[in-house]
Simulated scan of single mutants.
Amino acid sequence: MSTLTTIGFDADDTLWENEHFFRLTEAHFSELLADYAEPEILASRLLEAEKRNLAHYGFGIKGFTLSMIETAIEITDGKVPGDTIGRIVAAGREMLSHPVNTLPHVHETLEALTASHTLVLITKGDLFDQERKLAQSGLGDFFNAVEIVSDKSPSTYATAFARHGDGPDRAMMVGNSLRSDVLPAIEAGGWGTYVPHELTWDYERAEEPGNVPRFTKIETLAELRPLIERLKG
């Protein structure tokens, strides 16, 4: 670990709140379609649509909004009122302007680590929305590089850490998603540090790996610097 030179950070729900706004919008979506289906059924059908559409729309608010519209059409057998569609579109547009609330310990952790490591932000989602959130967060100056990607795979991390660091074997990825942030980074040859968030999209859930030396778990980012120091020893 004395050769650890690069640390990658996820953005949404690792550095700032994100899933909270999706949950609020989904609750509003359920209210709009309350006459057609129970909330549990709507949530299940919406998740199916989101997963089905990832290959077409990618991750982020725009794909989520289109999936809500598609679900509304399906659940009503094509009879969804036009004004309901309009409200869904408006809800999606409102999400694109939600405030950026950084999570605890983010600022001081990045400020301390940027002096000793190359920091790379690796996030997926809508390009404009991620750029907006990074700008409003005030965290941009801490990062040596920013990668906004369509998906996160082992090759994503291998490429990013080779481009901005000394390769994945000398890098650590920190994030709240086991599926997207941690497991593929480990598969690429790096360290994966899991920082759970109380709200996690079902698609991002995965089992914690057992007996994997390069897997670590911390409860908050306040534990990251002590973790790195312990691993060095």
Rank of each mutant, 00 (worst) to 15 (best):
S2D: 03
L4I: 10
T6A: 04
I7S: 00
G8D: 07
F9D: 03
A11I: 04
D13H: 13
L15I: 08
L15F: 13
W16C: 04
E17C: 05
F22H: 08
R23D: 12
A27M: 12
F29S: 09
E31P: 02
A34E: 13
E38V: 11
E40C: 12
S44F: 07
R45C: 06
H56Y: 14
E74H: 14
K79Y: 01
V80R: 14
V80N: 10
R87Y: 01
A90S: 15
A91I: 04
A91W: 04
A91R: 04
G92S: 06
P104C: 07
T109K: 07
A112L: 15
L113K: 12
A115L: 13
A115Y: 12
D126E: 05
L127M: 11
L139V: 11
D141Q: 08
F143C: 07
N144G: 15
A145E: 02
S155Q: 15
S155T: 14
A158K: 12
T159S: 13
T159H: 15
F161L: 04
A162K: 12
D166G: 07
P168R: 03
P168Y: 06
D169S: 11
R170P: 00
M172V: 13
G175R: 09
D181Y: 14
V182E: 11
P184R: 08
A188W: 00
G189E: 09
P196Y: 03
H197Q: 03
T200H: 01
R205G: 00
E208P: 00
N211Y: 01
R214A: 13
T216Y: 13
K217L: 04
I218C: 09
L224H: 05
L227P: 02
G233T: 02
